[in-house]
Write a protein that binds this DNA or RNA. Structure first.
Length: 424
RNA sequence: AGAGGAGUGGCAGAGUGGUUGAUUGCACCGGUCUUGAAAACCGGCAGCCCUUCACGGGGCUCGGGGGUUCGAAUCCCUCCUCCUCUGCCA
């Protein structure tokens, strides 16, 4: 959620930024927020003044009672009683104003950073870096959804039976490969200075609001209605919410956390062509890195996180490209996002395996995540996160790119984790 | 899940209706003293919102929400969390 004080002071640059997202009603959104804010402040000023009066009179009643001047105390008591009616109405107005403003601010997405190109869709994203060569596959090369059947390592049918579409069952070397990738990603992150966190997989409503999945993406999360809990769509939610309502000391920074979790996404309405096999699932595994940074350092941290993700892809020998997302394709909460896409040679498609974003203060403002500087000044922090990495599409590309007539080669770096160097 | 107890500032711990946003101790920060350090002493030390160019002024918050009252940390209701006992369970 944007800070209203920011909008008050930087209306024009906010507007300019939001236009890069292609928001047709950006001006209206901002001006309405400013109006609501103006109303709120007026009502609060009145309510505060009235309350100040009533507090002062009440104090006097106490003094009169102590002095034994009961009659005067009773007169005053009646007078203050009348103030209360007036105050009650103002309090209701104030609560309504605050609520309206809050709900309105939830509707305004984050302001894209300077570097973000304007654009409508993924077609307008900028390819800023590319690495590795596109493999030449043998004749008769198969897409991963055929390979997993051929070698019997991932089973969608039995997943359909026990749960439903999009919940595959990993078997044998397929299961082992999942575990190997998770361990590899966690070990690499720890080498890069991240602290491992194993969080709950269900979160409450407040956490959903903290990182911005609620109210915006309510329909995309699985909800356990009996207890009003949500299955996490990403480890970002619990790991960032660790710091909800927290004031960190400057010495505690930067925070660098990593966590492996399964992720659960309803993916309502997003099924179509191109989502076969592992390309899109309701449950998948992901290792997520999260950083919490002082405002001045967050873009440097973003670069550092990208470099980490890129090093993983290079170690796995996967060809990839780094995309700078345009305003229209960027998530609601982010100011700047890089997507990493690997090339899956049998499908002949680039698949997004990581999304690395800076949220600046957007999440921190919702979460009241702040730090106290050495001089004692308190201010909001910047939050960042990135997938490092999401497994299914990495597996898809590994299977497709490393296939030959007799099987699939496992990249050297994974062999110590899998205990085998081929799937056949 | 049932019964009982409890939740106060970074921590510990007072406070059961009236200038108490809160005694005190520890921790922390600044200062005096000291060659330096410790000790001692002095001072500071919650967050948010409104208002003011500023100095300052005002409001809200004692787990969350609601209520009683002129006035609530203190009384009532409700939810959450923790502890003890019983039950259940990997």
């Amino acid at each position: 959620m944007l800070q209203i004080t920011y909008l008050r002071e930087h209306r024009l640059s906010a507007l300019e930024g939001l236009k890069k997202r292609g928001l047709p009603d950006a001006e209206q959104l901002i001006d309405q927020a400013l109006d609501l804010d103006q109303q709120r402040r007026e009502v609060q000023a009145k309510a505060d003044a009235l309350r100040a009066q009533s507090n002062a009179e009440s104090k006097k009643i106490g003094e009169l009672m102590k002095a034994g001047q009961t009659n005067q105390a009773n007169d005053l008591r009646a007078k203050v009683g009348n103030l209360k009616h007036e105050l009650k109405k103002l309090e209701e107005d104030l609560a309504r104003c605050e609520e309206e403003l809050r709900l309105h601010l939830y509707k305004i997405p984050n302001i894209p950073a300077q570097a973000v190109p304007a654009g409508r869709s993924a077609d307008d994203n900028l390819n800023v870096y590319q690495h590795g060569s596109i493999p030449n596959l043998p004749k008769g090369a198969l897409p991963h959804w055929e390979l997993i059947k051929k070698y019997d390592i991932i089973d969608f049918e039995v997943g359909n039976k026990i749960t439903g579409a999009g919940f595959p069952v990993y078997k044998d070397k397929g299961a082992r490969l999942q575990r190997a990738l998770i361990s590899f990603f966690l070990d690499e992150a720890e080498k890069a200075g991240y602290k491992e966190i194993m969080p709950p997989l269900l979160v409450n409503e407040a956490s959903g609001y903290g990182t911005g999945q609620l109210p915006d993406k309510e329909g995309q999360m699985y909800c356990v209605t009996a207890d009003q809990l949500y299955l996490i769509p990403t480890a970002e939610v619990p790991i960032t919410n660790l710091y909800r309502d927290v004031i960190l000391n400057e010495a505690d920074l930067p925070v660098k956390n990593v966590g492996y979790t399964p992720c659960f996404r309803r993916e309502a309405g997003s099924w179509g062509a191109h989502v076969r096999g592992l390309n899109r699932l309701h449950q998948f595994d992901k290792v997520e890195i999260v950083q919490i940074r002082k405002p001045g350092e967050s873009y440097q941290a973003l670069d550092e996180m990208c470099a980490h993700v890129q090093s993983l892809l290079e170690k796995l020998e996967l060809p990839y490209r780094k995309m700078l997302l345009c305003g229209g394709d960027m998530g609601f909460n982010a100011t700047l996002t890089y997507d990493m896409e690997v090339y899956a040679a049998a499908q002949q498609r680039w698949l997004e395996v990581s999304s690395v974003s800076n949220f600046e203060t957007y999440q921190a403002n919702r979460m009241k995540l702040r730090y106290r500087s050495a001089e004692g000044k308190i201010q909001l922090l910047h939050t960042l996160n990135g997938s490092a990495l999401a497994l299914p599409r990495v597996v898809a590309a590994l299977l497709e790119n490393n296939q030959d007539e007799n099987g699939i080669r496992i990249p050297d770096v994974l062999v110590p984790y899998t205990g085998f160097n081929r799937i056949d």
